[in-house]
Simulated scan of single mutants.
Amino acid sequence: MSTPTRKRLTTSAMIASFVDEGQRTTPAPFGHALSRLAEERPEIVGLTADLGKYTDMHVFAQDHPDRFFQMGMSEQLLLGAAAGMAEVGLVPFASTYSVFATRRAYDFLCLDAAEPGLNVNIVGGLPGLTTGYGPSHQATEDIAILRGMPGLTIVDPCDSVDIEQAVPALAEVAGPTYLRLLRGKVPTVLDEYDYTFEVGRAAELRTGRDVTLVSSGLMTMRALSAAERLAEHRVDVGVLHVPTIKPLDTEAVLRVGRSDRLVVTVENHSVVGGLGEAVASCLAFNGVGRDLVPVALPDEFLAAGALPTLHDRYGLSTDRLVRRVLDALEV
């Protein structure tokens, strides 16, 4: 008697893909957007810490080799050099993995860029649970680390549309910025929703009578998919996409918080210090007392393995999100 074979869920650990089956994609949206911006603005420069290929900075490097700087495996030098360039009028975009930009080089970002208010744009690859590698590369607490830094703008884009529009917008911000990068073949979703990225603004992608999913980053794609699935259960779900974690769109959050709908925050980040806590504190500080249901990564170091398996294990899959909402509604 033969043993039935099971389909193995695998993914490349270093260049993981979170694209769900059937999703349209756009190749290297960050690299191409930065290259286009550089054609219009000669002060744009690109830097990386030995991770050009893995942060799509290689596209910029090929198009503008005289404005690209390879800093090697030295993240402190990367951010310090970017701050020096900003000091003399250049607009740097510096890319590395999120864990290295936040854990290793925090002091350089804080004192060299944030304290003097320089437009240094940090581009962090592999944010949250977007790699099958373990805690050494999973930046599950990057937003929590950076939210307390004065003057820093934090953007968690949903897809290629968000990234392409965020790049020129962040170049206009007065102080430093941090972009959670989705790289490689990035899903394209928001072009179907009459959407435009604006720093500090949330966008209501769909309305709903029963539930509002307040989401950021790649989880907005999952929120939209979950909303369609929940309609089969006769649950009407709205989705509020929050691409800018800081500064938070408090008006949009308060509108949702003052409604009588179930509010679920959905993020690819630790339950500690991310979007959920930002929303909760916004409501509390404005006297809006209500329950929130957080969908986020647990406060622990996560396992290594195949990305689809990890997303399901830690509650980020569409299936798990649908179940969490139904459980909250006791359906």
Rank of each mutant, 00 (worst) to 15 (best):
P4C: 15
L9Q: 09
T11D: 10
T11L: 12
S17L: 02
S17H: 10
V19N: 08
A28M: 14
G31Y: 03
G31D: 03
L37Y: 04
R41P: 07
G46D: 03
G46H: 10
L47G: 03
L47Y: 03
A49E: 02
M57D: 10
F60T: 07
G72K: 12
Q76T: 12
L77T: 15
L78A: 06
A81C: 09
G84K: 02
A86E: 11
L90E: 04
A94Q: 04
F100M: 12
Y106G: 09
D107K: 14
D112S: 13
G117H: 11
N119Q: 05
V120P: 00
N121M: 04
V123T: 05
G124S: 11
L126S: 09
G132D: 01
G132C: 02
Y133T: 14
R147Q: 12
R147H: 13
R147W: 09
L152D: 10
I154R: 12
V161T: 14
E164M: 08
A166P: 02
A166S: 14
A166I: 01
P168S: 07
A169F: 02
L170V: 02
V186G: 02
T188K: 15
L190R: 05
E192M: 07
E192C: 07
D194S: 10
T196G: 08
E204A: 08
L205E: 05
R209W: 01
V214T: 01
L218E: 13
A227C: 13
L230E: 06
E232D: 15
E232S: 09
L240Y: 00
T244G: 01
I245A: 00
K246Y: 08
E251R: 08
A252G: 08
L254C: 06
V263L: 13
T265N: 05
E267R: 03
N268S: 14
E277A: 04
V279K: 06
F285C: 13
V288F: 06
V295G: 01
A296C: 11
A303M: 11
A304G: 09
Y314P: 02
L316E: 00
L316W: 01
L316T: 01
R320D: 05
V322R: 08
R323V: 15
R324W: 01
V325N: 02
V331C: 11
